[in-house]
Design a binder for these strands. Structure first.
Lengths: 340, 340
DNA sequence: TTGAAAGCGGTACCAT
DNA sequence: ATGGTACCGCTTTCAA
């Protein structure tokens, strides 16, 4: 066998057997006491001895051993990969984690940057999570979903712009963002509407549907939509602004407030009047957008509260066969200000 | 015993025993083949049979079982709690995860929002990580460190503004940020220097040392530092700007670029000339700061590359007794522009 | 009320 | 070149 000493410093990691020995009871009793097992009555003196022994040794149960024995874990795995898309996202993630923990899940974010779909799925599956909640940062293939399910995941949930085969898809309707922004612009009489499409990788899952939404909004009107690739850099914005007149646009939906601020500054520097010549609409309702002159018109996204999603996850775990479709995870609302 | 069927759908999660059965070999052989164990020679035909069986069943090894047997894991746990402090942070985290994975660690972020120090430490310890890298988001007490070490963590590393007892402290010298900004302002002849201290909770670990750094910078000069509590809201900024003249300040270090932009706008609206009457310096070198007029002077923080920190973590794991102090994790450099 | 023991899914020593 | 098997830490049945 040969199990070499676990700790370099003589002191080994205490196990329930150590607690049992110190308390002068069996390991079974330790387990009963520490888990407050209802089905078994343990005398108060014994309980105290066990508790004190555990305390003295600094005993912490071994989650892996526990879930190995139990045959399942309560781990919810959240793959992450991208740089944050905005402050909403971080807040939302925090909320979700908090809510899941209240439902007694162990929430773990797993950085999967640079892993492709199936590699990632295998890596996640090794941890035997009871549920995986993916925000579309990592491409999840039907095959990857199959791997996860075979490895015991009760629920694979994708929250994102589009459905993924075999998962509980919670659709965040990004298209609606583009639609709301564009309808507003069309309603204000704008006809040639640019839509900024960030060139940064990893944003396609959001920018694509937003562009599509914008196209839907102009369908059946005489307005047109023009995609505008843009990097989040001054030079890129200046370059775009330089050929603005040639593009003949009278409005732009700038993907989000940051791109909007970038572009608006470039337009103003190029002598394009906002909103007279060109209306600008952002998205996210950042505080900073309100500080601009003109103040930035924007689309506010009210992300589902984390608690709601946590409940959906919990439901999917309890009833893996059910189909908890939900399309109400995101509401988008236009916040008209001065820029368009 | 009674281990009820693991999967509601008849299909159970395949184990190495299933692979062995299908391939007509022993579990030992399966292990040897799948792990490419050097010490043991397995014939090529057998290897192929095992691989095919594993493939056919969709076998994925069980990480918990493996690390239980091994007596250690390669999990690095990154506690997270707060909303992101800035775009640097997310990028840095991604880099770190990527670099650690290349060193064959499993990186896991554990959302610990709302857990106090010892609760959190216990929760982390249950996962038996080989290392914990804490960014000071969760208060890590000496006691918490002790819990982690007793549970087998080879390295507890704190990356943050101040040392924590018993850990490998990688100090990010936030004080330097305040010092750099303030020295610059003093050098430009400013004498009454406000320092914005955000009222939002969770930022104290950064704002405190930055304020101290500013104080150090004026020590021995005739300049003074005045702390300015501020919430990240327009009203708060307007209120502060309203009594600006009464404060008699000729400069302000605004904690970061976002607070700087907020305050600068409020000052301008209140008729305070920037930089003539009051110089404004931010921090983070956000693109948006460059778009303001006047352009925002700022302090750029060059965070250690993730790979460097990953190496430090790896070193600490390999030699837990060593003391890999590093104070070079953060370099701060003033970027003078127009605002001060 | 408590204890003995089986077994979760792997790994690695020792035999064959 | 393979297989048998003990064991990691914990839970839970069954017996005492």
């Amino acid at each position: 066998m040969s199990q070499s000493p676990r700790q370099s410093a003589g002191r080994a990691v205490p196990t329930s057997a150590d607690v049992a020995r110190l308390a002068g009871v069996s390991r079974a009793t330790v387990s009963y006491v520490l888990n407050n097992t209802e089905a078994v009555r343990i005398s108060e003196p014994t309980r105290r001895r066990v508790r004190e022994a555990a305390e003295e040794l600094g005993y912490v149960p071994h989650a892996a051993a526990r879930s190995l024995r139990a045959g399942h874990s309560r781990m919810v795995l959240l793959p992450t990969a991208r740089v944050p898309v905005g402050p909403l996202y971080g807040t939302f993630l925090n909320e979700l984690q908090w809510a899941l923990r209240r439902l007694d899940y162990t929430v773990v974010q797993y950085g999967s940057l640079g892993l492709d779909g199936d590699e990632a799925a295998r890596a996640w599956a090794e941890l035997r999570p009871v549920a995986v909640v993916s925000f579309g940062e990592v491409e999840l293939t039907p095959n990857g979903v199959e791997i996860l399910k075979r490895s015991g995941a009760k629920a694979v949930i994708t929250v994102g712009p589009r459905r993924v085969e075999g998962t509980h898809a919670l659709v965040m309707d990004q298209g609606r963002v583009g639609r709301v922004a564009t309808e507003h612009l069309v309603g204000r009489g704008r006809r040639r509407i640019g839509v900024v499409v960030p060139e940064e990788p990893g944003l396609e899952m959001f920018s694509g549907p937003r562009l599509d939404g914008a196209r839907q909004a102009v369908a059946g009107t005489d307005a047109v939509v023009v995609p505008l690739p843009l990097r989040y850099e001054e030079e890129s914005a200046n370059e775009l602004a330089g050929r603005w007149r040639a593009l003949g646009l009278d409005a732009v939906f700038a993907y989000n407030d940051e791109y909007a601020m970038l572009l608006m500054r470039a337009l103003q520097d190029a002598g394009v009047l906002v909103p007279e010549e060109t209306a600008v609409v952002g998205c996210d309702d950042l505080l900073l957008g309100r500080l601009l002159r003109p103040r930035l018109t924007t689309v506010r996204i009210d992300m589902v509260i984390g608690r709601r999603l946590a409940e959906l996850v919990d439901g999917a775990v309890r009833d893996p066969e059910g189909t908890p479709e939900a399309r109400d995870l995101m509401a988008s609302q236009l916040v008209p200000r001065e820029s368009g």
